[in-house]
Amino acid sequence: MTTTTTTGADASPPPPPDGGPAAEPLPAHRLVGRATATYIARLQPQFLADVPSAVAELARLRRGAGRRAHQSPDLWGIGGTDELAGLLDGHEGHIRCEYAEEAVFLAATLWALHQQSSREHGMHSRGHNLGGAVRALIRLKGATSADEEDSPLRKRLVRVGTAESLDSVAVRLREIVLLLRGAKVPLDYARLAGQLYRWQHRPDRAGVQREWGREFHLAAVSGAKKAKAGADGGNGDAIDGTLRPDEDFGGYAAGE
């Protein structure tokens, strides 16, 4: 695949088979997230069931964690790239294919590294965003509310947000994933893949950085609501509705 110079983020849908109205365009980052989710949804249950081929594939994927797709030719054809190619068929002129490949590859290899620690639970879990996962990890380490903002783990998230190259993002995310792995804190790798796709497009980068920050701070709201619910004997409310896993957040659709 080759990178295009198209600036729009939407992929044009195929024409309707019956001559009816065309479907709504699917944003490019959603195609990237879907390819990642499709790949992991196939492989994760097999790994948890100790299927030898899946165990071997994750072992191969882990070797690419924190690296770029072109640096790991031995992984061509796995890591969600085939799923991505299928979804992009006919849409190549409306998506930055190189960005998509890098995003899917990085997310899939980081998931494989993350999953290494557990045969009981899948470490890809929808709705567990990056900022919220870091906040959860901080709390598992025993930090008080007053200490959370000064936590070294928060500083690691900030380092991801301030990275200037995809190589730096990959290395810094790998550091966080290793910590999440140790604590068995899951992460939504489909969402992360979509964010990584958008991050590579300079005009969209600030929006992704703001998302990571908001995820972290809104997780504090979630924690406060849960604590209050526990004190009141209730179940509490979900955190801000904009963070529901089935909706866009922080400029996904608007290209913030």
Rank of each mutant, 00 (worst) to 15 (best):
L113G: 00
H114W: 03
Q116Y: 03
Q116G: 03
S117I: 05
S118R: 15
R119K: 04
R119N: 11
E120N: 01
G122T: 11
G122S: 06
S125A: 03
G127F: 09
L130M: 13
L130S: 01
G131F: 06
G132H: 02
G132C: 01
R135K: 15
R135Q: 12
I138M: 13
I138H: 08
R139A: 04
L140F: 01
K141Y: 07
G142Q: 08
A143K: 11
T144P: 05
S145Y: 04
S145V: 07
S145C: 02
A146N: 00
L157S: 02
L157P: 01
R159V: 04
V160Y: 01
V160C: 01
G161E: 10
T162V: 08
E164C: 02
E164D: 11
L166Q: 15
L166D: 10
D167A: 10
S168D: 14
S168Y: 07
R172W: 05
R174Q: 12
E175I: 11
L179H: 08
L179Y: 06
L179S: 02
K184G: 08
V185D: 02
V185W: 01
P186R: 02
L187H: 03
L192G: 01
Q195D: 15
L196K: 05
R202P: 09
G207S: 13
V208G: 05
R210E: 14
W212F: 15
G213P: 02
R214C: 06
R214P: 02
E215Q: 09
F216A: 01
A219E: 13
A220F: 10
V221L: 14
G223M: 08
A224D: 14
K225T: 15
K228S: 14
K228G: 08
K228F: 14
K228E: 15
A229N: 04
A231T: 10
D232W: 02
D232T: 11
G233P: 09
G233A: 11
G236L: 13
A238R: 04
I239A: 13
G241Q: 11
T242C: 07
R244N: 09
D246I: 10
G251H: 06
